[in-house]
């Protein structure tokens, strides 16, 4: 795991440093959006990680936990790690989108279908994190959290198709929209780097968060065993 952490950490630092340099200084302003297009080297990649990578991984791990043949606390811990990191990315998606929306749409926030369903997703997964803190046996907690995760993840396709199902202020797909790819040259490369960088950073964060979850669970087991041994020895002496 240490090696994977080192590789993912280095990859994310290098690619994201390049994204900052290319995004702020090297790429030209957009013909329609001007300088504000520079925010699009961040927002779509952060949203990609939040919606598809993080929640997709959490939902998959939850299904694997609920399925008896693959049930393992490893999947429960991976889902917990993915959701915690995912919530950070969901919040950043909303903030960066809002900062881009103010100069281009003229408002910080609007109750648009895409924005509202994304905010709902954030609230649902904050609820998931609260549910994890409710004291319970590890298996009971893992089962109820897996069910809650799958229920909350149903919002992801709603977020994805919201721009097609309803009339929204948020634009439809622009990079891989209908027809040819609509971003070219250095702008496309910067965007690609940002997707790689943020995905690698997510991987690094999830691995580290998973290790913390595992170490904490081991620590709790050790403390419980020590307490039981102490209690038994009290019984013997009295």
């Amino acid at each position: 795991m240490q090696r994977s952490l080192r590789i993912l950490g280095s990859l994310s630092v290098v690619t994201l440093a390049l994204v900052i340099v290319l995004g702020l200084w090297v790429t030209p302003p957009d013909v329609n959006q001007g300088e504000y297009a520079r925010l699009l080297y961040i927002h779509p990649a952060v949203a990609w990680v939040a919606l598809y990578v993080a929640i997709g991984m959490a939902a998959l791990c939850s299904v694997l936990y609920l399925w008896k043949r693959t049930r393992s606390l490893v999947y429960d811990r991976l889902a917990a790690a993915a959701v915690e990191v995912g919530v950070v990315f969901i919040i950043l998606t909303l903030i960066t989108g809002s900062i881009w929306g103010r100069p281009t749409w003229g408002v910080w926030w609007t109750w648009d279908a895409r924005l509202t369903s994304t905010a709902l997703l954030g609230v649902l997964f904050i609820g998931y994190l609260a549910l994890r803190r409710v004291p319970a046996d590890s298996d009971v907690r893992a089962k109820r959290c897996a069910a809650a995760c799958i229920f909350a993840a149903v919002d992801v396709p709603i977020v994805h198709f919201s721009v097609q199902w309803w009339q929204t202020l948020h634009q439809t797909a622009t990079v891989f929209g209908p027809g040819a790819i609509q971003v070219h040259g250095i702008m496309a490369w910067t965007m690609l780097l940002s997707f790689i960088g943020f995905t690698a950073l997510f991987g690094w964060m999830v691995l580290l968060r998973y290790r913390i979850e595992t170490l904490n669970a081991t620590g709790e087991d050790d403390e419980l065993t020590a307490a039981l041994v102490a209690r038994r020895s009290e019984g013997v002496t009295s």
């Binding site: 995004g23 300088e35 950070v88 900062i99």
Partner: peptide
């Protein structure tokens, strides 16, 4: 200013969380 604010919020948050 909006662009710099966007980059700052994103990277400061991610570095802090990291």
């Amino acid at each position: 200013n909006y662009v710099i604010a966007g980059y700052l919020v994103t990277f400061v948050t991610l570095i802090g969380y990291g």
